[in-house]
Amino acid sequence: MPVRIGVVVFPGSNCDRDTIHALDLAGAEPVVLWHEQASLEGVAAVILPGGFAYGDYLRAGVIARFSPIMRAVAAFAGDGGLVLGICNGFQVLAEAGLVPGALLRNQSLRFAGREVAIAAERVDTAFTHALEVRRPLRMPVAHGEGCYYADEAALDALERARQVIFRYVDATGMDAQPGNPANPNGSLRAIAGVINATGNVAGLMPHPERAAEAILGSEDGMGILRSLVESAARAAGQTSPLEAAAR
């Protein structure tokens, strides 16, 4: 039986269908979770997809943070449940304090909608174990508020705790610091994605679900989704699709 993974739909979510499709491809059974429901319906992991939840009014992600489903997501995360936030989902997680830091308006003041390259700093997490360390992954970004910010002391603490899991990289594979055109939003220390201290909640600005099939120009996002699906299957005590296929 495929592992059930929840995809939360807020009013204004617009990447939920892409995420559901990509989860299908990754061998999971996607479960749609509406923002007004208080139950996660027993899913083994949750994805907060991209979009503009509640119109991004006030600050991106903040209104969504107080929705009934987010109470359930916070409790699930507190119990060690796997949660991945993509783009707007990352903003929601940051506003909820489930991952460290904040996402500021892009330093260019422009909406960034283009392909970028990111590299995984760690391949020992529930979200990255199917990846190769520091191999550039091509996938799109599409956001106006994606500039990762934390103060210097907090950034140092994140690095020490190895909580930076993705960084923007340039054509040479080096970290794309603010000012480098390969850094789409001015994110400090080229940070594209982070993980919480307990390793079960992660967020990233780029869209792996939009790079999940060759026809989309890149399949590099699949490694992230496949990592999550496998980890969720393991958490649910099931055989993962990959392990099943290997037999």
């Binding site: 500021l104 260019s108 003041l109 103060d151």
Partner: peptide
């Protein structure tokens, strides 16, 4: 806050 980049 002071020190936060404010592109606007």
């Amino acid at each position: 806050k002071p020190g936060i980049l404010d592109p606007q």
